[in-house]
Nucleic acid binder design. Structure first.
Lengths: 252, 252
DNA sequence: CGGGTCGTTGAGGAAGCTCAAGAATCGTGG
DNA sequence: CCACGATTCTTGAGCTTCCTCAACGACCCG
């Protein structure tokens, strides 16, 4: 039923992957700086310093001081909110080129989310003051940033819609599809979500419990929609999943 | 138990409230243009045209073409998402100075939300092209916009946390408090949410049903936390509500 | 005063949670 | 290479929360 070994390659990001050249190309690939020239990006790169984190390591905690902006250069990062009930909320999983930290350059003195290295990763860090200076000098970058954040607002609204109006089965199907589309890689198992992903992660993303996720994934597997194992998932029947993720209650 | 008449004044926005002067002061009060000089705002105002809507009237529908940006000048506007199950999701209620429409200036060709006039209201409309031109000319406005949208992203993340992790009672208490803080006015009944607000609205904001909201509000009323009636709510015991809205399960 | 909208309350049922135990997988040290 | 502990996943049973369906009462406006 399940493959034994995880097909997800938990390769470490070796330090040399984080050379200045990589930093440059990551920044240029970022929505913020895409409209700028190579020279401009090169000047901006000087404002960022690079820090490596091992998988599982905290990058910053909810409530700590926040006067900095971070960009994922390599690896993936989890953005979560801790809750007193112990049940964490997983807001976003960010891949290379995404940014996080004190998005709001304004008053916001503390982080509103906890960021954790999901895989080994390399993070570029700039202070918000430096970032503000860059945006002032490059209006195109400011507009690009605005568009980027507006896109994430849309995505957040999507999630709110899901949580408000749809049952867990649909939310889970939708979440798996979204992950496959963002981080998918064609593999023997199907369209593999190329990232370690536990049932707990999926539960925290869909606002449910590990047990419920496990049960649903078992039936998804039985129905030939997905393949899955310990900390990995792959989409097998994309159309089938999509039917679950959009209201089509199967007729007959 | 309940007051008979609604203490919320459903005053119409008379057309003369939407003079050019009002338009100017609203735009200047907007987070986007706050950092600009009076003269700059005056020039920008020319890009906006003004349209009035009666309470209940649709301003734009989900899925229609979206190449425009709208600012609330007077009144309040509801941003909703329709769902096939019939259960609508109420994402935000916007007051004067808030903006909506195609936040994402980019590709986004259709509206992601339905906007409805909650009260009679006056809306300022500009095309996204004009808006983009304004931002390009005024980097300070672009940065202010970025901060504004980032703030709304935070708020959306708050909502996601609520929906993912907390029971309905807490979500409802929290939502009422937030509304009272944003749109509250001291009145005989307590801190009155100065806006017509049905049980259905509250249900759509908290991801639950009218019946559940009604039941909970009845007990809130019995416990002396709120006062409420047909399409209005007022906070009586702020601390009590806040205790419900933050994990403090009453001891003993 | 009568029709329409909005709110309240009840009874029954279903979705999903909690608690609990056991199985599979992984990493590590011998 | 194997054994062990730790983590992750699975499955079951009972129960709670909340939804659904339904009826009725209150308020509003013409």
């Amino acid at each position: 039923m399940e493959r034994r070994q995880s097909p997800v390659d938990l390769q470490s990001i070796t330090p040399q992957e984080c050379t200045f050249d990589v930093l440059l190309s990551v920044l240029h690939g970022t929505p913020f700086f895409a409209p700028l020239s190579h020279e401009e990006v090169q000047a901006i790169a000087a404002s960022f310093r690079q820090v490596d984190f091992a998988a599982g390591e905290p990058i910053h905690h909810y409530g700590t001081d926040a006067r900095r902006l971070e960009v994922v250069a390599a690896g993936t990062v989890k953005l979560t909110r801790p809750t007193i009930t112990g049940r964490d909320v997983l807001l976003e999983i960010l891949g290379p080129g995404s940014f996080f930290g004190s998005v709001d350059l304004l008053g916001q003195a503390t982080h509103a989310e906890t960021a954790t290295a999901n895989t080994d990763c390399c993070i570029l860090i700039a202070s918000t003051d430096e970032f503000r200076r860059i945006l002032q000098a490059h209006p195109a970058a400011a507009i690009a940033s605005l568009e980027y954040v507006a896109g994430r607002l849309q995505a957040a609204h999507d999630t709110i819609e899901q949580l408000s109006a749809y049952p867990v089965e649909r939310r889970l199907a939708s979440t798996i599809l979204k992950l496959a589309d963002t981080l998918g890689r064609e593999a023997d198992e199907g369209l593999l979500v190329d990232m370690p992903l536990s049932r707990q992660d999926l539960a925290d993303m869909t606002g449910t419990t590990v047990e419920t996720v496990s049960r649903l994934m078992s039936t998804f597997r039985k129905d030939g929609l997905i393949q899955s194992g310990r900390r990995w998932v792959a989409v097998v029947d994309r159309d089938g999943l999509e039917r679950l993720a959009s209201d089509e209650i199967s007729p007959i």
